[in-house]
């Protein structure tokens, strides 16, 4: 111990410099991280803003390689696909979340279900595309909006399930007990007392999941396929904004590239809006734990 205090000034100097160097490196790393963010966002805005105008939002795509035209069918298709995914993902996801938090407790089955949920969050989305391809696209012999929405919905389930479980657990146990103590059956305690108390958090989880699936591309290649027209039927291929970005990014035309940036900007803006809402509403659910 005592010898430690007798460090020579040289090692003392080295220690100081090591700190400066170490923290300097972390600072550089932070600048790199932020630089990546700003270069992507900056480039996107710089290139995309020029493509966005009224026609871009309300028109169908122009003939191949020609200027003008818009991405209206993709926007509409995105809306439809996300709606279908919500119909699938929200009830199932919330149901599983309720099960894990309110019913299962610490049983062995619950921990298996919990591991399954957490594992499935990490399964690549293209795998869900393969699943839906085989159970829906191949049997019906057509890519379709339903198939795309189903794939996105399945991706949503574990995300919503986990956030729901987490926020329901933040609701104080005393609220549940108080409900049970006046003779409320469990289901009413869950739906009348616990879910409303966790409302902000559940909504947050929903937004997070919707934002996540709205940006999914890979499973849609296997299920929704994409096309050039306004959607006419849920049982036909449907276009979606990320499929459109993919197509335009890979095309050889400058117009397409510009429109890809425009579409990407709209997508990022939409999703960032979701993140902002998320941030605002998580403030509420922090307050809830008290």
């Amino acid at each position: 111990m005592a010898s430690k205090h007798k460090t020579s000034s040289r090692t003392g100097n080295w220690r100081k410099w090591r700190g400066v160097l170490g923290f300097g490196l972390t600072g550089v790393a932070t600048l790199i991280s932020l630089g990546a963010l700003f270069s992507i966002l900056g480039y996107l805005i710089h290139q995309g803003i020029g493509a966005i105008n009224w026609n871009f939002i309300v028109r169908e795509p122009a003939a191949v390689g020609e200027a003008g035209g818009g991405i209206a069918p993709s926007l509409l298709g995105t809306l439809i696909l996300v709606s279908i995914s919500m119909v699938v993902g929200i009830p199932l996801g919330i149901g599983v979340g309720i099960y894990l938090s309110e019913i299962a407790g610490g049983t062995r089955f619950a921990s298996v279900a919990r591991i399954a949920i957490n594992t499935f969050i990490g399964v690549p989305s293209i795998i869900m595309g393969i699943f839906v391809y085989f159970i829906l696209v191949k049997p019906t012999n057509t890519f379709s909006a339903i198939a795309g929405g189903l794939a996105l919905g399945i991706i949503m389930i574990p995300i919503i399930a986990r956030t729901t479980e987490d926020v329901l657990r933040l609701v104080p146990k005393s609220i549940r007990e108080a409900g049970l103590a006046i003779g409320a059956p469990k289901w009413r305690v869950t739906f009348d007392l616990v879910l409303p108390a966790a409302r902000a958090g559940v909504i947050t989880g929903g937004i997070l999941a919707v934002a996540r699936v709205a940006g999914e591309t890979a499973p849609l290649i296997l299920t929704a396929l994409g096309n050039e027209y306004y959607p006419t039927s849920l049982f036909k291929p449907i276009d979606e904004i990320t499929l459109r970005i993919l197509k335009y990014a890979r095309g050889p035309y400058d117009v397409w590239h510009q429109q890809a940036y425009g579409a990407a900007l709209i997508l990022v803006f939409g999703v960032a809006l979701g993140s902002l809402l998320l941030r605002l509403s998580t403030r509420d659910h922090d307050a809830l734990s008290r």
Binding site: L37, I40, L41, T242, I245, A260, S275
Partner: peptide
């Protein structure tokens, strides 16, 4: 700073791909 970096997580894959490709 945390928020800005978290924002990166909200950018969909295809947009990263677009940036990477073009």
């Amino acid at each position: 700073v945390t928020y800005l970096i978290e924002l990166l997580a909200f950018i969909p894959s295809v947009v990263y791909g677009l940036f990477g490709l073009l």
